[in-house]
Simulated assay, not measured.
Amino acid sequence: MATSVDAKLLKSTKFPVEFNQKVDMQKVNVEVMKKWIAGKISDILGNEDDVVIELCFNLIEGSRFPDIKKMQIQLTGFLDKDTAGFCKELWKLCLSGQSNPQGVPKELLEAKKLELIQEKVHIHILPYSIR
């Protein structure tokens, strides 16, 4: 699928050092990552673009060891200036996920914990503020 243009871009683009590390998708909780991907792409584009989201899912699930550099090149047409940041964040989460026994990136676990704590605080405060 890589065209000669893609090949040139792969050679000329400076990628983050994290991209040199492999991710074994069998060690990553793909469903958790898909939820993050869908949310992040929707944030970037300002709407839920199923085509771009599905493309990203296919790229990440296409092989056991996805190539984040090729993925970044392929997503650039859709995510424009946000592609590099998106791919770097995605790769860091995948790297984190593969080192966690549940396959969930610790950053997402921390964010979920914080969300649950805030909900609890909100629930406890709410009844008193109604009076």
Rank of each mutant, 00 (worst) to 15 (best):
V5N: 15
L116I: 09
G46C: 09
W36N: 00
G85T: 03
L75T: 01
L108A: 06
I130N: 15
I44Q: 00
K120R: 13
A38M: 05
L9P: 11
L93D: 00
T76S: 09
S12G: 04
Q74M: 13
S4F: 09
S96R: 04
T76E: 08
V17E: 10
V28P: 04
K70I: 13
F86V: 07
A111R: 05
M1P: 13
V121A: 05
Q72I: 02
V30I: 15
S96K: 06
E89K: 15
L93E: 00
I44Y: 00
C94P: 06
L116G: 03
K113G: 11
V104I: 15
E115Q: 07
I117L: 11
K69D: 14
K34P: 05
C87P: 00
K27L: 12
L108V: 08
D82V: 06
Q98H: 06
V17I: 10
V51E: 14
G46L: 08
C87F: 00
N29T: 09
K22Q: 11
L108F: 06
P66Y: 02
I130P: 10
G39I: 00
A38F: 04
K70R: 13
P127L: 00
S12H: 09
K27V: 03
G77H: 01
K8P: 13
A84L: 15
E18Q: 04
S63G: 08
K35L: 14
K120H: 10
I123M: 11
V32C: 07
Q118K: 15
K112G: 10
G85A: 05
V23F: 04
L59Q: 06
K113S: 14
C87N: 00
G46R: 05
G46E: 10
M25H: 04
T3V: 03
E89T: 12
N58L: 09
D6S: 11
S129K: 12
F19P: 10
H124N: 06
L114S: 12
E119L: 15
I117Q: 15
K120Y: 08
T13E: 04
L114D: 14
P101N: 09
D49Y: 02
G77P: 02
V32Q: 08
Y128V: 08
K120E: 12
K106W: 08
E115K: 04
V104T: 08
L109H: 02
E107G: 01
N20P: 01
K120N: 14
L45N: 01
T13V: 02
L108P: 09
F19H: 07
K40F: 07
L90W: 02
K27E: 08
D50T: 14
E115F: 03
I60H: 02
D80P: 01
P66I: 03
L95P: 13
L55Y: 03
L90G: 03
L116Q: 05
I130E: 14
L114V: 12
S42P: 01
E115N: 06
K92V: 07
K120F: 07
K8H: 11
V30G: 03
E119D: 12
K34G: 04
D49V: 01
D6R: 05
D80H: 08
F15A: 04
Q98W: 07
